[in-house]
Computed example of a mutant assay.
Amino acid sequence: MKKLLTLTAVATAAFTAPSMAAEEVNVYSYRQPFLVEPMFKAFTEETGIKVNVMFSDKGLAEKIKQEGEYSPADVVLTTDISRLVELADKEVVQSVNSDTINGNIPSQYRDDEGEWFALTLRSRNVYSSRDRVGKLGNDFDYTDLAKPEYKGKICTRSGKHPYNVSLVASMISHYGEAETQTWLEGVKANLARKPQGNDRAQVKAIKEGLCDVSLGNSYYLGKMVNDPEQVPWAESVYINFPGQESNGTHVNVSGMAMAKYAPNHENALKLMEFLTAEKAQQMYAEVNYEYPVKEGVKRSELVASWGDFTADALPLEKVAENHSAAVRLLDEVKFDL
């Protein structure tokens, strides 16, 4: 595992043993520090509770399991539904029953047993070249990516990346394994290059003329618009919301769970409730260009400019159930080779 970066919401600090201080809460996070620090700072200002954060890009479920009852973790933040479900499957989280949280988060975006909750939504979009393709119509669907007309025109990051695995898992939920495998074979045949890089790298490839369309999460467009070097990339594409005349656009989530042996249980619950309330949800929208999970919270002006869309209503638990099958199909079609 890569060396873990430790920090707090207000200053750098390490925690190596369970914190029993009344005014602390310990967070293990897959989310990068700069994305969550603003929310933690606001929480501390409002409650006086200090937030200690340990960041890692992998292995947090295993770490908590190894630490057992001596784990200092109170709250775990993740970047994908598969990682939320992994926490539950490894039995390193506990059930939370909060009227506040349940009232803020729609049922399709939380676990029936209260073991995990979504915090933000991010749509899995298709970006298209402004010059060579133009805006895709409302009838465009993910299934279209396998059509012969896109031969040599598609770029994407690794099929095994959690964002793409979740999309494939949702396709299995809607169409079954056999049809999804045929679709994956068609998409692979249409790739302009071997899967590589991140979502922003695919938009850069469109700008450079290497491909015409790509898969990418919505919030990356906001990040590119605010990066002087990447503005030309963003300006070279349209953002499209597939599935508007079928199942809707696939959405993934960032989310949270309470650690099984949370030593600061009360403070952990306060933090979790704060992150689902309007103030933090608005900050997620403005700072990270994500879609708030709490109904009624406004999107950022930039995100709103991309237009409205209908999200896939498939419960995330159904998507998670097909995670292993999605990975297997990606291996069978040798998608990344």
Rank of each mutant, 00 (worst) to 15 (best):
K63E: 13
V96Q: 04
L302Q: 13
V287E: 12
E86M: 14
S214P: 08
T78P: 08
G134Y: 07
V76L: 15
S71Q: 04
L215K: 01
A268L: 09
Q202P: 03
E245N: 13
G159I: 06
A285F: 02
V168Q: 06
K63I: 10
G197L: 14
V75Y: 05
I206H: 11
E290C: 09
P18I: 00
R31L: 15
K334Q: 14
L271C: 09
E301K: 14
Y28E: 08
E91G: 11
S71H: 05
L329P: 03
V319S: 02
V297W: 04
D227A: 15
A234T: 04
I49H: 03
K65G: 06
S71C: 09
I206P: 08
E278L: 02
L314E: 10
N104E: 05
L136K: 03
V303I: 14
A257V: 03
E266I: 06
L145N: 06
P162G: 13
G134D: 09
E229I: 10
P232Y: 11
E321L: 07
S107Y: 03
V251L: 09
S95I: 00
A234N: 04
Y127G: 02
P195C: 12
G222P: 07
A234G: 08
A262N: 06
K318H: 08
T8V: 00
V225A: 13
S214N: 13
Q108S: 10
A146S: 15
A262P: 04
N247I: 04
E62P: 05
L167A: 10
S214F: 11
A73C: 15
E23G: 06
A201D: 15
G159N: 11
F43E: 03
Y28I: 00
A304R: 10
K334M: 07
V51Q: 05
